[in-house]
Design a binder for these strands. Structure first.
Lengths: 240, 240
DNA sequence: ATAGGATTAAAACAGTTGTTTGAATACTCC
DNA sequence: GGAGTATTCAAACAACTGTTTTAATCCTAT
């Protein structure tokens, strides 16, 4: 039940305890989830007093948001900037799906690669936050992602003009879902493969495998929904 | 913060309160998550005494597992049976990927369609459980899924003999991830589409869209990883 | 050096948590 | 009908929660 995460208070600068708190919170929230992580656990791991959490952040929820903002904000901004640059470089040709996906993945890859930026810890925390039922978390994420998602949806719309707005929304949703789940799922991998042959790989390799997989689904021809539906319905009725 | 879920104690049979507790727990766990849902909330919604929870299930964790087992066990068993039947019908031809995917999706679809079986409520709860950090939840799910996953992995292996064992594990992992995320994500849809044009659709339609998307990724040709890697690396270095 | 604001510290606050207890009630089977 | 098991109930348990308070300490700029 307890953890080995005991941060030594080495930083002594001005706002040092604040970043120590953020680091400890990032790691512990990732490990136990938001509700199950107590402020006493975080402050102890950060070598800080309990009251420091509320002093620096105001509340536990605000602290959680601060943990997310610290890395999410720059990453999403970088995604948009990268997409902008790709489009400028490709002009006047419309940008291909593979390049748009790359603009979505590369900033996440860079974050996963650089331990100083939080490494894989943060990406897993992010994936979990994506599935967390707490209303304040969803409200926060929705605000953080709105601009970036709208920008990418427009780009995909230009690259896939034959897809309806609705079909595009679906596929983009699936992509973000697979991405966030994948980022969160290093432990969930064990559910899939009993022998766990993937465990030695890191998130970086994982993302490199995921991108081609999603690209195929994204660029797939329009499915004949009526056919799929008919088969499914027949099977469901048969089993009733 | 409070909910409208107030189950009227209508069932009066022998083990009636036990199923009332399961129903209330299913709905509340789905809405608030495991940690954030108190036994007092559940028992009150079920019209039962607080002690009834521990009397019937022993602990909160055991109660959560009972909620999952009630529907997950039959669903996974049905998946395997369906796969077996499809393979018999197709013999001696190996089963195609689309049919294997159908065996995976149809039982989930049937569960989503039938409110008496829990309807969409349970599928969302399941998707969230998949991303929950609590160790006992992951241990439980891993045990519940192990047999079913191994069976489907073997089937996919026969259908896609050109894929390495590792590549297959990846793609299966992505499929399960996208599936569980999608099931959990009715609320997360709002993150993606600000106007939320998908909200009126239900999980059934969602699954029918997801299947073709995943099929495309699953049957995609082997990606030239070295190429992807090279481009990504160049971009990451450039931004450094 | 010292005033004054920023930070830390220990303690207490008011609630809530899952679980247990022991008596009261309901039910079933002989 | 009544013995005996199964279930319900109210109450209390000890531990933990996020937050606030008050005083002590540190740091910086005058």
């Amino acid at each position: 039940m307890d953890t080995n995460v005991v941060a030594i208070p080495e930083l002594r600068g001005a706002a040092a305890t604040k970043v120590r708190l953020l680091d400890a919170a990032e790691s512990l929230f990732m490990e136990h989830g938001f509700e199950a992580t107590s402020l006493r656990l975080i402050t102890a791991a950060a070598g800080a007093n309990l009251a420091a959490a509320n002093y620096h952040f105001g509340s536990k929820e605000a602290m959680f948001e601060a943990v997310l903002t610290r890395r999410l904000d720059p990453m999403n901004q970088e995604r948009v900037e990268l997409l902008d640059r790709f489009e400028r470089e490709s002009a006047p040709m419309p940008l291909g799906c593979d390049r748009i996906l790359a603009a979505l993945f590369i900033p996440a890859l860079r974050l996963a690669r650089d331990p100083a930026l939080g490494g894989n810890n943060f990406l897993r925390l992010l994936g979990r936050a994506y599935a967390d039922p707490a209303p304040f978390i969803r409200r926060f994420l929705s605000e953080q992602y709105a601009l970036m998602i709208a920008r990418f949806k427009a780009a995909f719309g230009r690259a896939l003009p034959h897809l309806s707005k609705k079909e595009l929304s679906w596929r983009l949703h699936f992509i973000m879902g697979a991405l966030s789940y994948t980022l969160a799922g290093t432990d969930a991998l064990k559910i899939i493969s009993e022998l766990n042959p993937l465990a030695t790989d890191n998130d970086e390799i994982l993302l490199r495998r995921l991108a081609p997989f999603l690209l195929a689904g994204l660029t797939a021809p329009l499915p004949d929904l009526s056919d799929v539906t008919r088969e499914f319905d027949a099977e469901i009725e048969r089993g009733r």
